[in-house]
Amino acid sequence: MFKKLFSYIIPVNIHKQNSSISKNIEITWANGELVLDSKNTNYSYGSLQRILRKGLKSIGFERVLKMQNILVLGVAGGSVIKTLSEEIKFKGKITGVEIDSEIIKIANSYFHLDKIENLEIVIDDAFEFVLKTKEKYDLIIIDIFQDTTMPNFLFEEFFQNRTCFLLKEKGVILFNTMCLSEKENSRNKKYLENVNSELFLARTIPRVEDHNELIILERK
């Protein structure tokens, strides 16, 4: 309790761990809440939870509540899953795909992700998972980072088309991106230009928490 109270003055680190995939992982009390960070950015809770909550609010909590099947690509500490479960009270199936098994162990220990009954965690590469899955989803949340870097495959036309194919009728993609340079702004612009406007409505929520841009694709 003292560490939690003291964190309103200065962040208090309580756990550090190296991972072969995520490199440096830290659990910190910050402003009275536990957050999961990499070396240079927030991975779960804190600002990241605010970013994805804003995206879900834009889609509509009531709309999300009526969905049946949600896919989360990139779980980390599971902050968006906690928003779905605890704030929206989503009762349908949540499938979380995370490549780093170590980070899931931390999420279970510190954030009790394993207590969410309607959540299935799959340890797999997101690219491989979307190739293999035969399910269709009402909502696909893409939130994949390696520290401040996003894997290139996320913006390739093949991956974009495959995730769009996995959507049910009226399904939605919520894609959290980080833009730190003009090159990354251009990358996002190209991604949006590749959207099939006959099948999808595309919009953005720019500059969420300074450097994040949310891309929302809605199947017509």
Rank of each mutant, 00 (worst) to 15 (best):
K3N: 12
K3R: 15
K4P: 02
K4C: 14
K4L: 06
F6G: 04
P11E: 06
V12R: 08
V12P: 06
H15E: 10
S19R: 11
S22Y: 02
S22P: 04
I27E: 06
I27S: 04
I27M: 08
W29F: 11
L36M: 15
T41R: 09
Y43E: 00
S44W: 00
S44D: 06
S47F: 11
Q49A: 09
R50N: 13
R50H: 15
G55A: 04
G55W: 00
L56D: 05
L56S: 01
E62M: 05
V64T: 01
L65N: 15
L65S: 14
N69P: 03
V72A: 01
G74K: 00
V75R: 05
A76G: 06
A76Y: 10
G77S: 10
V80D: 07
K82R: 12
T83H: 06
T83S: 04
L84K: 02
L84C: 03
E86C: 13
E86I: 04
E87Q: 13
I88G: 05
K93I: 07
K93N: 11
G96Q: 00
G96P: 00
I99H: 02
S101R: 13
E102A: 04
A107S: 14
H112W: 12
L113K: 08
D114H: 14
K115M: 12
K115N: 14
E120S: 13
I121C: 09
V122N: 08
I123K: 09
D124Q: 10
A126V: 05
A126L: 00
F127C: 06
E128C: 08
F129L: 09
F129C: 04
V130L: 00
L131H: 15
K132E: 14
E135N: 10
D138T: 02
I144P: 03
I144F: 10
I144D: 06
Q146F: 15
Q146M: 15
M150D: 01
N152M: 13
F155W: 07
F158I: 12
Q160T: 00
N161Q: 14
L166D: 04
L167A: 05
E169V: 00
K170F: 07
K170M: 05
K170C: 03
V172F: 02
I173D: 00
F175W: 12
F175E: 01
N176K: 10
T177Y: 08
L180K: 10
E184R: 08
N185I: 07
S186Q: 14
N188Y: 02
K189I: 03
K190Y: 08
Y191V: 10
L192T: 08
E193R: 11
F200C: 02
F200M: 03
F200R: 01
R203K: 11
T204Q: 09
R207L: 11
R207G: 07
V208R: 04
E209N: 15
E209H: 14
N212V: 06
L214F: 05
L214D: 01
I216Q: 04
E218W: 02
K220C: 05
K220F: 09
